[in-house]
Amino acid sequence: MIEAIFSYEFLQNAFAAGLIIGVIAPLLGVFIVVRRLSLIADALSHVTLAGIAGSLYLSQSVASLALLNPLFLGIAASVGGSMLIERLRSLYKHYQELAIPIILSAGIGFGAIFISLAEGFSSDLFGYLFGSVSAVSREDLFIVMGVAIVVLVFVFIFFKELFVLSFDDEYARASGLPAKWIHFMFMIVTALVIAGSMRIVGILLVSSLMTIPVATAMRVTKSFKQTIFLSIAFGEISVITGLVSAFYLDLAPGGTIVVTSIFLLLLVLAYKKIMVSRKKGAIA
């Protein structure tokens, strides 16, 4: 495997991009989970599908756009979707969750129209839906690197504000934090991560890499920082195991990555159950 990575550029791209996503998706995922926004990640990934499908259709029908990387329109759709979600959440103050099915179905609706308009990109589309080891280009890798820099700088600069906002939104606003702006930037950065992760994990599974490693870590950690580090560790184990098995078994990496992360979650749940029953036994 190591030899193959040195020999094939596509494998280098996939592994480098995978390792980066293994850090940024769970890192942002911790904030998404504790703020109970997990379903927003799903809505945004479906909007990204509309952007990708639209781009693939345009590249078929407009000659000058033939070489356009679909990731760019995917990112634009995802960022646009995040802004629309915020707008809808403020319009329906008492039914904020309504924004999710509206944006999610809009994403699938536009995606379905573009897919039916353009016939013949089913293999490309399969890669976008479930991820692909072979389809990650050098340009895709550079885009993922750019997204990672934005995410890391954002989290580094606003870490304490994001923590306070996630823990207690009302307290954060009473303290005079610019909560609205920080949340708005957070949504844009989330949209970027979803669009960036999609090449490896696939549109339909991208939100799982943001949530399952976090759900796993939360079962065994006490502090917020521990949760972040352990979520990243579980994310990396899932990505590496998933990519290696996808390469050898010729499977979609999105599937193998998510199944590995579910397996880790089950392992941790079983470990926790054993520890609790041992503790109870010791007390009795």
Partner: peptide, 19 residues
């Protein structure tokens, strides 16, 4: 106010007051 299952220590929560 806060989300009762939040994974944070007392130290992290109190330090948040300095934000």
């Amino acid at each position: 106010s806060f989300n009762s299952g939040f994974p944070a220590t007392v130290k992290e929560v109190v330090a948040g007051g300095l934000v």
